[in-house]
């Protein structure tokens, strides 16, 4: 374990001041399920870390709220809370379902959505669903607050565009209004406590005839960073789903993967299988959309 100094903040302002004071050498800790693992193995990612600032006691950062047209989630919301909350289950079941697949009961109790985002793992399970929800994050520092679309947060595997003195204070997304269906598919090496080999999130809005009006598809561990795949979305938009179309979308996803990630040791497996997962996710989401009774909101 890399030795470090432990600090604790009781409010957001205090946290921002502390981070500003120790610019670049102080890491925020929420649940610690990523940070402590990295510190223990003296990972390169935490080479700069000398101090750890515990934000887990800042009550204001732990919430899941229905704000009319929007849902707002505090960064300290645990995966267990995301999986169980009535708000997420009603307005963002794709997120609740994904959170339920994270780690084990212990990890879901400790691990937070803010940590999942800020850690920026290619395999993070809540990120693709949040991307399909068009989520943005609020970040704060002593120099102020800014709202950032989630899609702009991920720079590279385990690297974000956040500054080291910034903390995530909120995650917000508009409620999908209308007839929507979702699918979250995670492929791991076992049924639980498993890091995604690949994951696919699909959120599809249709009209009453089944024409896909709004198509949002994001993948994890497929592209260099978790991302929406507009080429695939565009292929489907305005169409009714057929088996052939779903298959074609899968093929396109696979070639997008190779285009953006290149050929790696795992490509021989991932290339055929991402086709399948994409196809399955699209089919399930579209089916669910059609089965959905209109969301009254």
């Amino acid at each position: 374990m890399k030795p470090f100094e432990y600090l604790r903040a009781s409010g957001v302002d205090e946290a921002c001041k502390t981070l500003a004071a120790y610019s670049g050498t102080c890491a925020v800790i929420a649940g610690g399920t990523d940070l402590l693992v990295a510190l223990r193995s003296r990972s390169k990612r935490v080479e700069h870390v000398e101090k750890v600032l515990d934000i887990s006691k800042i009550r204001d950062l732990d919430f899941i709220e229905d704000r009319g047209n929007e849902v707002a989630i505090g960064p300290l919301a645990s995966h267990a809370a995301l999986a169980e909350s009535r708000v997420t289950r009603k307005y963002a079941p794709i997120l609740a379902e994904a959170a339920k697949t994270v780690g084990s009961p212990q990890i879901r109790a400790r691990g937070t959505v803010g940590g999942n985002i800020a850690n920026a793992s290619p395999a993070a399970d809540t990120i693709p669903p949040l991307l399909t929800l068009d989520a943005s994050i609020n970040v704060r520092s002593t120099s102020g607050e800014r709202l950032l679309p989630l899609a702009e947060v991920f720079a590279a595997p385990y690297r974000t565009t956040l500054r080291p003195d910034e903390i995530i204070t909120e995650i917000v997304f508009p409620k999908p209004a209308g007839r929507y269906g979702h699918s979250f598919i995670k492929l791991g090496r076992r049924k639980a406590l498993s890091i995604s080999r690949m994951n696919v999130a699909a959120l599809i809005g249709t009209d009453d005839e089944g024409t896909m009006k709004d198509v949002r598809i994001a993948v994890g561990s497929v592209m260099p960073v978790p991302s929406r795949v507009s080429a695939v979305e565009d292929l489907l938009k305005g169409q009714k789903l057929t088996d052939d179309l779903a298959r074609e979308a899968g093929e396109l996803m696979s070639s997008e993967m190779i285009r953006r990630s290149g050929i790696r040791w795992s490509t021989e497996y991932k290339a055929p299988v991402i086709k399948v997962l994409t196809r399955r996710a699209i089919v399930q989401a579209a089916k669910r959309a059609m089965a959905e009774t209109m969301n009254v909101s």
């Binding site: 080999r197 040791w265 795992s266 497996y269 055929p272 299988v273």
Partner: peptide, 14 residues
């Protein structure tokens, strides 16, 4: 008999 062997008939080595 992991994912790769069952699908591809061989393992992929990193």
């Amino acid at each position: 008999l992991n994912l790769e062997r069952v699908l591809l008939g061989k393992s992929l080595k990193r």
